[in-house]
Amino acid sequence: MKTDTIKTIAKKHDPKRPLAKNCLMSFIFGGSLCALGQMISLFYLYFFDFSEETVGDPTVATLIILTMFLTGWGVYDKIAQVAGAGTMVPVTGFGNAVISSAIEHRNEGFVLGVGSNMFKLAGSVIVSGVFSSFVIAIIKTLLA
């Protein structure tokens, strides 16, 4: 049997994805996460000495730490099953990726398992962030 035929048959029996429902859930959960981020940001603005320019850093850090704890406790994965991309696209997806990899490889030891694998998924994000900020810093220095 040709591969194309197998694919066609398999496609016919594939359960249909609830695309509209997935989009709606992502929108609601993603939006709620952003609203939570805004609340954290306002909290830092009101009670600490952060301006609007600097408040992003502690807000992002808080969201990532919160996600890391929720992933460790196994709560975040349950939310992600319902929310889909709504929990993966915001910065919380980063924390989830780090801790998920760490949990997955914990049996291989702390150095070779957790240490070398925890940034497998999130490492690319860090590298691209560091590299692009390096390039922008060079451009800014040259223009100044």
């Binding site: 603005l45 009101y46 952060f50 301006s51 609007e52 320019e53 408040v55």
Partner: peptide, 11 residues
């Protein structure tokens, strides 16, 4: 005269 559009300034 000083102006600021930073929300922290308003607070």
């Amino acid at each position: 005269v000083y102006t600021s559009s930073d929300m922290k300034a308003t607070i």
